[in-house]
Amino acid sequence: MTDAKSNDTDKWDINITSGSGYLDFHFDELWHYRDLLIMFVKKDIITVYKQTILGPIWFVVQPLLTSIMFFVIFSRVAHISTGAVPAVLFYLIGTTLWGYFSDTMNVTSKTFTDNATVFGKVYFPRIILPLSKVVSGLVKFLIQFSLFAAVWLYYVFVSKQVTPNWYVLLAPVWLCFVVLLSFGFGIIITSLTTKYRDLIFLVGFGVQLAMYVTPVIIPLSEIQGKKKLLFLLNPLTSLFEAFKYGFFGQGVFDIKWLTYSVVFTLVTITLGFIIFNKVEKRFIDTV
């Protein structure tokens, strides 16, 4: 028994209890599982184009077709202006960015429900899974972005319709916030829907609607009056505009609203981590 007592003073590696503190994160554990993150990302990428001939090229087909569709409907039929930016270029970056946001949010918001069988059998830090979706989404984004980049270079150097400015260097920063925002929303939604699934129905519909208050089809500069406030309240708007501002030299770059977006994102992601951390311990009983 003396031995058992002396053991108590030693450090225990894991303590499995009923609850956890609100800020009880184990980042060291995440580091140990980094290889798992890489494997999940690989799996996501590889399985998409297994048994296809064109392989990763399929990634660019989606934004390309959407852009062409938008071009025909909104630009040619509805005559909605995209400002001074060539319509195709505008739609291409819009759909690529929006595609990343909505895809990542959709897939991360189903983390618990979609992976319940794996989560029910083995432990690993649950956050690895949505994190891997964020990263594999980024890989897909980069492939799609290179399509945009090619078209963009054409407009800059060949037809000279677009003049970029130095703010283009800040683009990765804005992208980073879009990533965090989709991740934050995703893990909040998945945490809230383990027990009550009602929210799922709202989310699917909400994301569809949200596209129309994000400058994907219409640039912010073309919007007037009360509708403009609605756009600006959407944290994505300023981020999208700032992203495009660097590439096109056109758009709204408003520090005040950018700050709003950044703060909104940071609050969302922090909240997301807290709720996710709380829910992951026992969701398997209710999912």
Binding site: W12, I14, I16, K121
Partner: peptide, 27 residues
């Protein structure tokens, strides 16, 4: 024990790495 879910009350203390095989071929 394998941390798939957590207890309602009480605690389990563990020293060392745990691997659990509740099923083969998970994932």
């Amino acid at each position: 024990l394998s941390r798939v879910t957590s207890p309602t009350t009480g605690q389990i203390k563990v020293r060392g790495r745990i691997a659990s095989l509740l099923e083969v071929g998970t994932g």
